[in-house]
């Protein structure tokens, strides 16, 4: 009984989500205003996330390299093992999926609380009264802005991870030459593309799901907080499911 109720609730929410997306993806009323919002969102959601992406990727790249060198690499394995494994982990999973999970926390809560606050302070009503399609005006620039910026964040994350790995070389854990050989060993460019494609899908999930939660807030600041938590949890779960699906599809 409980399960059925839960499923029905989910279907209803999904229908509402689709309806909101239908309103979101309509041609902007004023291209000039859309472009202004779009650039603003690219900066707010993308550029402002570069710092955290670089920082986390740098340390994860370093730690992966140390772990593999000290705990997995053994004399009968080729010297390039550490560099090769570090690259594959960064490119295949960390820089797309895990980084998007981190961004779901940062960007998702930001989007949900911003739109949620606009809802409870009647700013969205004010837009509607003016005859503005509030869904399209607020959500479309966020979704497209994040989807535009995410490939850059993926590349930055990969590069920063490699730099982290080289940093361990300077700490004497691995020789830079071994690392370079490993990083270049049987490199498949498609993996980078795969990572980028996945991350674009995740960006859509983060921005649209968080907007959905923010847009449908009713009540006050307490509910905005709840919506922002729900946004992060739901978009993280959806990213994990989508990751399995997309990895199968693209490999």
């Amino acid at each position: 009984m409980f399960a059925i109720k839960y499923i029905l609730k989910f279907i209803a929410a999904f229908g509402k989500y689709l309806d909101l997306m239908g309103r979101t993806f309509s041609v902007p009323e004023r291209m000039r205003m859309f472009m202004k919002q779009y650039v603003k969102e690219m900066s707010q959601l993308g550029v402002d996330s570069i710092g955290i992406v670089l920082l986390i990727s740098f340390f994860i790249g370093a730690v992966i390299c140390i772990q593999i060198k000290l705990n997995i690499q053994s004399p009968w394995m080729p010297n390039f093992t550490t560099g090769y494994t570090t690259r594959e982990i960064m490119v295949l999973e960390f820089s797309s999926s895990i980084m998007c999970l981190i961004l779901a926390g940062k960007v998702g809560s930001n989007i949900a609380s911003e739109i949620g606050t606009m809802r409870v302070t009647q700013q969205i009503d004010a837009l509607e009264i003016m005859g503005v399609n509030s869904a399209s005006f607020l959500i479309l620039p966020k979704v497209l802005g994040l989807m535009t910026m995410i490939p850059f964040l993926v590349i930055f994350s990969i590069v920063s991870g490699f730099l982290g790995a080289y940093a361990t070389a300077y700490a004497g854990i691995i020789t830079p030459d071994d690392l370079t050989v490993g990083l270049l060993h049987s490199f498949v460019p498609w993996f980078v593309w795969m990572s980028i494609i996945k991350s674009v899908a995740f960006a859509f999930i983060i921005a649209s799901v968080s907007s959905y939660y923010g847009y449908n807030v009713t009540g006050g600041s307490f509910d905005v907080g709840k919506a922002s938590t729900n946004a992060v949890v739901s978009s993280s779960m959806l990213i994990l499911f989508a990751d399995i699906f997309l990895t199968q599809l693209l490999s």
Binding site: M118, Q122, Q123, D125, A126, M130
Partner: peptide, 26 residues
């Protein structure tokens, strides 16, 4: 239609001038 809400409902990411210009911009 123009409406003034109980809470004013100004767009808080915009300046006063941008708020008033908003309907004109749109």
């Amino acid at each position: 239609m123009g409406m003034i809400f109980q809470s004013a409902a100004l767009f808080d990411s915009m300046t006063v001038l941008e708020n008033v210009m908003f309907p004109l911009d749109m």
